[in-house]
Simulated assay, not measured.
Amino acid sequence: MDMAQSDFHSRLIGWLKILLPLVALGILSTLFLVARTIDPDNAIPYADVDVEDRLREPRMTAPNYAGLTADGAALTIRADEARPASDSGTRASALALSGVLETPDGGRTELLAGAGQIDPGARRILLTDGVTIRSSTGWQVQGENLTAAMDTTDIEMPDAVTATGPAGVVTADSLRLTQAGDGEDSYLLVFNGAVKLVYAPAN
Protein backbone atom coordinates (compact mmCIF):
# COMPACT_ATOMS: atom_id res chain seq x y z
CA MET A 1 0.00 0.00 0.00
CA ASP A 2 2.80 2.35 0.86
CA MET A 3 4.53 1.56 -2.41
CA ALA A 4 1.32 2.24 -4.36
CA GLN A 5 0.89 5.60 -2.67
CA SER A 6 4.52 6.48 -3.31
CA ASP A 7 4.17 5.51 -6.98
CA PHE A 8 0.98 7.61 -7.34
CA HIS A 9 2.68 10.56 -5.69
CA SER A 10 5.65 10.33 -8.03
CA ARG A 11 3.41 10.15 -11.10
CA LEU A 12 1.36 13.13 -9.86
CA ILE A 13 4.49 15.21 -9.40
CA GLY A 14 5.68 14.21 -12.85
CA TRP A 15 2.41 15.24 -14.50
CA LEU A 16 2.30 18.53 -12.60
CA LYS A 17 5.81 19.36 -13.78
CA ILE A 18 4.51 19.08 -17.35
CA LEU A 19 1.02 20.54 -16.94
CA LEU A 20 1.78 23.63 -14.84
CA PRO A 21 4.27 25.17 -17.33
CA LEU A 22 1.80 24.44 -20.15
CA VAL A 23 -1.02 26.16 -18.25
CA ALA A 24 1.22 29.15 -17.57
CA LEU A 25 2.11 29.41 -21.26
CA GLY A 26 -1.56 29.19 -22.16
CA ILE A 27 -2.47 32.02 -19.78
CA LEU A 28 0.31 34.25 -21.11
CA SER A 29 -0.58 33.58 -24.74
CA THR A 30 -4.23 34.35 -23.99
CA LEU A 31 -3.26 37.69 -22.45
CA PHE A 32 -1.29 38.68 -25.54
CA LEU A 33 -3.95 37.47 -27.95
CA VAL A 34 -6.89 39.28 -26.34
CA ALA A 35 -5.02 42.45 -25.33
CA ARG A 36 -6.21 45.54 -27.17
CA THR A 37 -3.92 47.31 -29.59
CA ILE A 38 -2.54 50.48 -27.99
CA ASP A 39 -3.78 53.63 -29.67
CA PRO A 40 -1.33 56.51 -29.06
CA ASP A 41 -4.16 58.99 -29.59
CA ASN A 42 -5.96 57.54 -26.58
CA ALA A 43 -2.96 57.80 -24.27
CA ILE A 44 -3.53 59.48 -20.92
CA PRO A 45 -2.89 63.21 -21.35
CA TYR A 46 -0.51 64.56 -18.73
CA ALA A 47 -1.36 68.20 -19.46
CA ASP A 48 -3.51 70.13 -21.87
CA VAL A 49 -0.56 72.02 -23.35
CA ASP A 50 0.26 72.92 -26.93
CA VAL A 51 3.92 71.85 -27.00
CA GLU A 52 4.66 73.54 -30.32
CA ASP A 53 3.20 76.80 -29.04
CA ARG A 54 5.29 76.57 -25.85
CA LEU A 55 8.45 75.98 -27.89
CA ARG A 56 7.63 78.90 -30.17
CA GLU A 57 6.69 81.26 -27.32
CA PRO A 58 8.22 80.08 -24.01
CA ARG A 59 6.29 81.04 -20.88
CA MET A 60 5.96 80.21 -17.19
CA THR A 61 2.74 79.50 -15.35
CA ALA A 62 2.14 81.13 -11.95
CA PRO A 63 5.62 82.66 -11.53
CA ASN A 64 6.63 84.36 -8.30
CA TYR A 65 9.22 87.09 -7.63
CA ALA A 66 10.28 88.08 -4.13
CA GLY A 67 12.94 90.50 -3.02
CA LEU A 68 14.02 93.00 -0.40
CA THR A 69 14.51 96.66 -1.27
CA ALA A 70 17.52 98.66 -0.12
CA ASP A 71 15.38 100.43 2.50
CA GLY A 72 14.20 97.12 3.97
CA ALA A 73 10.77 96.75 2.35
CA ALA A 74 9.73 93.27 1.20
CA LEU A 75 8.34 93.11 -2.34
CA THR A 76 6.49 90.09 -3.73
CA ILE A 77 5.08 89.87 -7.27
CA ARG A 78 2.95 87.02 -8.64
CA ALA A 79 1.30 86.48 -12.02
CA ASP A 80 -0.90 83.98 -13.84
CA GLU A 81 1.57 83.74 -16.71
CA ALA A 82 4.95 85.22 -17.61
CA ARG A 83 7.03 85.33 -20.78
CA PRO A 84 10.81 85.83 -20.78
CA ALA A 85 12.58 88.59 -22.68
CA SER A 86 13.19 87.72 -26.33
CA ASP A 87 16.26 88.13 -28.52
CA SER A 88 14.37 90.76 -30.52
CA GLY A 89 14.41 93.08 -27.51
CA THR A 90 10.94 92.40 -26.13
CA ARG A 91 10.93 92.79 -22.34
CA ALA A 92 9.87 90.07 -19.96
CA SER A 93 6.11 90.37 -19.50
CA ALA A 94 3.33 88.90 -17.38
CA LEU A 95 -0.46 88.72 -17.20
CA ALA A 96 -2.80 89.19 -14.23
CA LEU A 97 -0.25 90.44 -11.72
CA SER A 98 -0.63 90.85 -8.00
CA GLY A 99 1.97 92.22 -5.63
CA VAL A 100 2.56 93.06 -1.99
CA LEU A 101 4.94 95.69 -0.59
CA GLU A 102 5.54 95.41 3.17
CA THR A 103 7.52 98.28 4.67
CA PRO A 104 9.57 98.17 7.88
CA ASP A 105 7.11 100.51 9.62
CA GLY A 106 4.43 97.80 9.38
CA GLY A 107 2.65 99.23 6.35
CA ARG A 108 1.28 96.93 3.69
CA THR A 109 0.44 97.89 0.11
CA GLU A 110 -1.24 95.49 -2.32
CA LEU A 111 -0.97 95.89 -6.10
CA LEU A 112 -3.23 94.45 -8.80
CA ALA A 113 -2.81 94.87 -12.57
CA GLY A 114 -3.99 93.29 -15.79
CA ALA A 115 -0.50 93.05 -17.29
CA GLY A 116 3.07 94.10 -16.68
CA GLN A 117 6.65 94.17 -17.86
CA ILE A 118 10.01 93.95 -16.12
CA ASP A 119 12.92 96.14 -17.21
CA PRO A 120 16.01 94.54 -15.59
CA GLY A 121 18.32 97.27 -16.90
CA ALA A 122 16.34 100.05 -15.24
CA ARG A 123 15.44 97.82 -12.27
CA ARG A 124 11.79 98.78 -12.67
CA ILE A 125 8.45 97.01 -13.03
CA LEU A 126 5.75 98.49 -15.28
CA LEU A 127 2.13 97.55 -14.55
CA THR A 128 -0.55 98.31 -17.15
CA ASP A 129 -4.14 97.55 -18.21
CA GLY A 130 -5.73 98.94 -15.07
CA VAL A 131 -3.94 99.14 -11.73
CA THR A 132 -5.38 99.03 -8.22
CA ILE A 133 -3.44 99.82 -5.03
CA ARG A 134 -4.81 98.94 -1.60
CA SER A 135 -3.06 100.31 1.46
CA SER A 136 -3.24 99.11 5.05
CA THR A 137 -4.12 102.72 5.96
CA GLY A 138 -7.53 102.21 4.33
CA TRP A 139 -6.86 103.88 0.98
CA GLN A 140 -7.56 102.35 -2.43
CA VAL A 141 -6.05 103.98 -5.52
CA GLN A 142 -6.97 103.20 -9.11
CA GLY A 143 -5.25 104.23 -12.32
CA GLU A 144 -4.19 102.94 -15.71
CA ASN A 145 -0.43 102.45 -15.27
CA LEU A 146 2.14 102.12 -12.50
CA THR A 147 5.92 101.88 -12.31
CA ALA A 148 7.77 100.48 -9.30
CA ALA A 149 11.47 100.24 -8.53
CA MET A 150 12.83 96.78 -7.76
CA ASP A 151 15.61 97.91 -5.42
CA THR A 152 14.02 100.76 -3.44
CA THR A 153 10.57 101.95 -2.42
CA ASP A 154 9.56 104.14 -5.36
CA ILE A 155 6.06 103.65 -6.80
CA GLU A 156 4.63 106.07 -9.34
CA MET A 157 1.31 106.27 -11.19
CA PRO A 158 1.97 108.79 -13.98
CA ASP A 159 -1.61 109.02 -15.28
CA ALA A 160 -4.90 110.19 -13.78
CA VAL A 161 -5.68 108.48 -10.49
CA THR A 162 -8.64 108.18 -8.13
CA ALA A 163 -8.09 107.43 -4.46
CA THR A 164 -10.81 106.46 -2.00
CA GLY A 165 -10.15 106.35 1.72
CA PRO A 166 -11.18 107.37 5.23
CA ALA A 167 -11.03 111.09 4.38
CA GLY A 168 -13.09 110.86 1.19
CA VAL A 169 -12.18 110.78 -2.50
CA VAL A 170 -9.05 112.29 -4.06
CA THR A 171 -8.47 112.70 -7.79
CA ALA A 172 -5.14 113.80 -9.26
CA ASP A 173 -3.05 113.78 -12.40
CA SER A 174 -0.50 111.42 -10.84
CA LEU A 175 0.90 110.16 -7.55
CA ARG A 176 4.16 108.90 -6.11
CA LEU A 177 5.07 106.84 -3.04
CA THR A 178 8.67 107.08 -1.80
CA GLN A 179 10.69 106.85 1.38
CA ALA A 180 10.41 110.12 3.31
CA GLY A 181 14.17 110.69 3.34
CA ASP A 182 14.26 111.95 6.92
CA GLY A 183 16.33 109.04 8.15
CA GLU A 184 13.31 107.38 9.70
CA ASP A 185 11.35 104.36 8.48
CA SER A 186 8.54 106.54 7.13
CA TYR A 187 7.06 106.90 3.67
CA LEU A 188 5.58 109.77 1.71
CA LEU A 189 2.56 109.59 -0.62
CA VAL A 190 2.22 112.67 -2.86
CA PHE A 191 -0.62 113.52 -5.25
CA ASN A 192 0.47 115.78 -8.13
CA GLY A 193 -1.20 117.97 -10.75
CA ALA A 194 -4.85 118.96 -10.55
CA VAL A 195 -5.61 117.50 -7.14
CA LYS A 196 -9.21 117.49 -5.93
CA LEU A 197 -10.44 116.26 -2.55
CA VAL A 198 -14.08 115.49 -1.81
CA TYR A 199 -13.98 115.39 1.97
CA ALA A 200 -16.22 112.89 3.74
CA PRO A 201 -15.93 113.41 7.51
CA ALA A 202 -16.45 110.38 9.69
CA ASN A 203 -19.84 110.17 11.40
Rank of each mutant, 00 (worst) to 15 (best):
Q5T: 09
F8G: 01
H9N: 00
H9I: 00
S10D: 00
L12Y: 00
L19T: 13
L19R: 02
L19V: 15
L22H: 05
L22M: 13
V23W: 11
G26V: 07
I27D: 07
S29P: 03
L33G: 04
R36P: 06
I38Y: 12
P40E: 09
P40S: 08
D48T: 10
V49D: 05
V51I: 12
E52D: 12
L55G: 00
L55A: 01
M60Y: 14
T61A: 14
A62K: 15
A62T: 14
A66Y: 10
D71K: 03
T76E: 09
E81A: 14
R83V: 08
G89Y: 02
L95H: 15
A96S: 15
S98N: 15
S98E: 14
E102R: 13
R108H: 08
T109Q: 07
L111P: 09
A113T: 05
G116L: 09
D119I: 04
P120D: 05
R124H: 01
I125S: 06
I125P: 01
L126D: 12
L127S: 07
T128G: 05
T132G: 03
R134A: 07
R134M: 03
R134Y: 01
S136K: 00
T137I: 03
Q140M: 14
V141C: 03
Q142G: 09
G143S: 10
N145Y: 04
L146Y: 02
T152A: 13
D154F: 06
E156D: 11
E156T: 10
E156R: 08
M157Q: 07
M157L: 13
P158V: 02
P158E: 04
T162L: 09
A163L: 10
T164I: 15
P166Q: 12
P166Y: 10
S174P: 04
L175Q: 02
R176W: 05
R176Y: 04
R176L: 05
T178E: 07
Q179D: 10
Q179E: 11
D182L: 04
D185Y: 06
S186W: 02
L189N: 05
V190H: 08
F191T: 08
N192D: 13
G193M: 06
V198W: 07
V198N: 13
N203D: 15
